[in-house]
């Protein structure tokens, strides 16, 4: 049982001895866990990571994926990651910065990757997510489309899909939609 009045005295003592030094702000448990994820990253050669806010803000970062095979060979795609303070209870928020022609990424950069939403579990980590993103480019999936037009082309005419991807990556139009150059 606590001795409340002893607590009271101690607090007065602390207040008197503090010399006006504010207690240091700590990292939240979520930030600590993220630090662990980051310090253990083991990225494939095709992926790299950048911290625009410097070495002490790891909660916002960018991951660049350069696929080394498949339809998107030669492309370069950047994803922004936002991590919540209650990570890993909540999945990272990931968006693609470029407008890309992809069945599982919509024109606003939303990504349909199961482990970012319905299948996220706290045992997963940043490395898993980055591998998942890489996988999206080597094996785009027409069955769970976010861009249903691109998905239909991939399903019905893979060759045409390849041509469209090349044109989009070069900064061209598919139908009425302009895509970002990401070569």
């Amino acid at each position: 049982m606590i001795r409340l009045f002893k607590v009271k005295e101690k607090q007065r003592e602390i207040a008197e001895n503090s010399n006006g030094m504010p207690p240091t702000k700590k990292q939240s448990p979520g930030e600590l866990r993220l630090n662990k994820d980051i310090s253990e990253l083991n990225l494939p050669k095709t992926c790299s990571i950048k911290f625009p806010n410097g070495k002490d803000d790891l909660m916002n970062f960018e991951v660049t994926v350069k696929p080394d095979e498949g339809y998107y060979l030669g492309g370069k795609f950047t994803f922004t990651f936002q991590i919540a303070t209650i990570y890993p209870h909540e999945a990272p928020k990931v968006k693609c910065r470029e407008r890309v022609y992809h069945p599982n990424i919509d024109l606003d950069g939303n990504v349909c990757l199961n482990i970012l939403r319905e299948d996220w579990k706290p045992v997963l980590n940043i490395n898993t997510v980055i591998y998942g993103l890489y996988h999206l480019f080597t094996e785009p999936n027409h069955e769970d489309p976010l861009n249903s037009e691109a998905a239909a082309v991939l399903r019905d005419n893979p060759q045409q899909f390849g041509t469209n991807v090349k044109r989009a990556m070069g900064g061209g139009h598919i139908g009425q939609t302009a895509f970002s150059r990401c070569m």
């Binding site: 240091t24 702000k25 700590k26 990292q27 600590l32 630090n35 662990k36 980051i38 310090s39 253990e40 990253l41 083991n42 990225l43 790299s48 990571i49 950048k50 911290f51 410097g54 070495k55 002490d56 790891l58």
Partner: peptide, 22 residues
């Protein structure tokens, strides 16, 4: 080991960009 104190990352073993900075 990678080491953090308060809000400062003192040393990060990976990724290479952070290793270099610390």
């Amino acid at each position: 080991a990678s080491v953090t104190h308060g809000r400062n990352n003192l040393y990060m073993q990976a990724p290479p960009t952070l290793e270099e900075l610390t």
